[in-house]
Design a binder for these strands. Structure first.
Lengths: 211, 211
DNA sequence: TTTTTTTTGGAATGTATACTCCGAAATTCG
DNA sequence: CGAATTTCGGAGTATACATTCCAAAAAAAA
């Protein structure tokens, strides 16, 4: 994530600094609300109230709700990718893999297992009804999967895994376990599913450990 | 307070056979629409049109939309549990495990990887905003997990797995892989994620195979 | 400073949607 | 059969929600 432009604002070059701040505030407020209560249940009025803006501001910065949704997807993608990249770009050992696991689990515990995955919940709600959102979300997941794959390839190249390990398959299986584990943890309000889902996959990866 | 009805239990009008049919038709129509486009985006009018009923019928059989949602959850739960029970109640071999896998994958292929899991999508949309629905969905997932666990225990008792296999953990990990795999398959419109997620978990279970 | 552009406040509008109401047709029951 | 109950048609209501509009304040540009 570009820290000089954390909300990925590139569309409207005629925004002043103040305008950019307002726009960012809207996106952050919308992202939080949509994460907590879903996209459909988040009204423009909700966002206005949370971001402390009027409706003229809302429609000054975004053409329509759909456009705001796309920005929220982009914002959540950046956050997730950046947070995970810290762990995945340096997967040099099984300890590092477990550190990644701990990072994910700790987030869930901190938020009382509420909310699930910021991208997974957007995916589930938007994939079938919003074509543009679907495309964005699909790209986000490909990017996420790719960063996991690269981490595993790095472990392989470091000699931590033997040649039977297939980083392509393992990355996809890990991401699936992560998504399913987060959903079940959210439903049960219990960290156990995400812990067991990830641990089981890591244990499986361990079977490819070079001795 | 009405002393003939101190607990304020509203008496349900008796349903004739015709009434039951109409009620069922409403639930099925609602379930399909909510599966295709989500709960929030499915209007009562949509359901009325699909079930070919008037609004007086809608509110004759259901007090409010929330009540209909609960019936939809119950309906989808029954369908999923029954369909999977066919495979899980007789898990006597790895072939049977792969038959279950094929059953799940074939459904996705047939529907062009659209829709995801009927319970998973309801879960993601309702868990944070509808307490009663949340409870029902949690029960559904526990029941589903339990039936997977029983299947694995059966394999264990049959002597297919060694004593290192933990059916509790494996069942939860399998369900997580299933849910995550279905979500990714839905997002990518590609059966690959669900295939790899399940195959990887089954391969892991295979490491507990009794020789 | 003057002019132009951007940002903001807030009322107004139109439509979508959950839910109600009344009476009539159909069905069940005694 | 006749009375009671259930089922149904469809117009009507109230409100929530996305979006628009006008004009003024604030900021930037000239």
């Amino acid at each position: 994530m570009d820290m000089n432009n954390p909300l990925n604002i590139t569309k409207k070059p005629k925004l002043t600094k103040k305008g950019q701040e307002t726009r960012s505030r809207i996106i952050v407020a919308a992202a939080e609300l949509m994460y907590e209560q879903g996209v459909a249940r988040t009204t423009i009025e909700d966002v206005q109230h949370k971001a402390k803006i009027s409706s003229s501001q809302m429609y000054h910065y975004f053409k329509e709700k759909k456009e705001l949704i796309l920005e929220v997807i982009s914002y959540q993608t950046s956050k997730v990718i950046e947070n995970h990249r810290r762990y995945l770009s340096d997967l040099d050992s099984f300890e590092a893999l477990y550190a990644w696991r701990d990072f994910i689990v700790d987030i869930q515990i901190k938020r009382n297992c509420e909310g699930g995955c910021p991208l997974g919940s957007l995916a589930s709600e938007l994939v079938e009804t919003n074509t543009e959102a679907h495309q964005e979300i699909m790209s986000s997941f490909f990017e996420w999967e790719d960063s996991i794959r690269k981490g595993l390839r790095y472990m392989l190249n470091r000699g931590e895994l033997n040649s039977n390990a297939d980083p392509d398959k393992l990355a996809l299986a890990l991401l699936a376990a992560l998504q399913g584990g987060l959903l079940l943890t959210q439903v049960r309000r219990d960290p156990k599913p995400i812990i067991i889902a990830l641990d089981t996959m890591i244990e499986h990866i361990n079977s490819f450990k070079k001795i």
